[in-house]
Design a protein around this nucleic acid. Structure first.
Lengths: 184, 184
DNA sequence: CCGATATATATCAGATCGATATAATATTCG
DNA sequence: CGAATATTATATCGATCTGATATATATCGG
């Protein structure tokens, strides 16, 4: 999904400013599977306004730090529906953590274990964030997604906690093979 | 990780051409947590060569479709180690599937269920791809990562298979409330 | 009242993405 | 054999995205 569709989706819940859209995207559930900055949002809103997909109202007189409220038009609503109906393109994950772990043999064992501990802490935070955000019971999709998120984070966390000590043993055995050699 | 680091990491296994680097990144384990196109790889290799991080040899005479082999230098190796030692920046996931699912209430129930079925098929393919790629037993990190991948895909797959029918029921109940109204 | 933080918009250089161009070799199949 | 197709291989380009930065006011606690 490009930034324009992201904006349309947030605006489908009600009119908002660019800043408010960004804040919404930073929180669950959106923050769990997308990410966008102001540098993408403002140009996208400008384009959507030019295309007639949103109606932009300037609130400069009342509000001091000039604020632009964007509201979905019928054109915008049908655009959103069209985008959502497309077959979703494959997930795109960029994980420095997993990439580093793959090359962990090049690094000091302690550093690798530190990174895993940090990741465990992050996942705990994410999981409690997801659990704190109860889905609306009247939306079957939101409930389904909520369960999927809990399963995902819970599963990864469980694996890391269970296998950390084994990895620590294996790494130390590999990096200090003197004891092994002595045992042979 | 930027594309330059990605290239250095692949080259740490041995010299390769840009095309070969792309092919390596397209397969497990790399393809599971990154993605890059030629449009990023070729400029990155050019820059790395200029910076002295890789040594580029032109194989035009022997090979007919001109081929450039890039080999890691000491400078490149130390750059890679330095990049891997940094605290990894947070994961970045962009999932059209999860995004669409979140807004599934706007779509026809059948379309949502179709997308879930397609996702199940994709995850099955990914999982068997991961399982087919046995990690080197002498690399504790690779073994650890392999287990993590299986846990992740297996867990998500399991959730989707178990909860699909409940979602189907809930969606139909919500979209066709006539029976419900009749029951009241 | 001052400083820190939150609200709010905007821009810009650099990186990335996806498509496309080009071209020789290798393979497949009637 | 020869034609069609796939694979190997490099390169570029516009559109988009990223991350940082600039700017200005409002608000809240000390």
């Amino acid at each position: 999904m490009d930034t324009k569709t992201l904006c349309l989706a947030v605006l489908s819940r009600g009119p908002a400013s660019g800043y408010e859209i960004k804040k919404t995207l930073e929180q669950p559930p959106y923050c769990l599977f997308q990410d966008t900055g102001f540098g993408s949002i403002y140009p996208a809103l400008q384009r959507l306004n030019e295309d007639g997909a949103v109606a932009t109202t300037d609130c400069t007189p009342t509000r001091r730090p000039a604020k632009r409220i964007h509201a979905l038009t019928d054109e915008g609503r049908s655009r959103l529906l069209e985008a959502l109906s497309q077959a979703p393109s494959p997930d795109r994950l960029r994980s420095d953590f997993l990439f580093t772990l793959l090359h962990g043999d090049l690094l000091p064992p302690d550093l690798v274990l530190e990174m895993i501990d940090a990741r465990i802490a992050e996942l705990e935070a994410k999981l409690s964030q997801v659990e704190a955000c109860e889905p609306r019971a009247d939306s079957p999709c939101a409930v389904f997604l909520h369960g999927l998120g809990r399963t995902h984070y819970g599963g990864c966390l469980d694996y890391l906690r269970r296998n950390r000590s084994k990895l620590a043993r294996d790494l130390n055995a590999a990096s200090a093979p003197s004891s092994k050699r002595a045992a042979e």
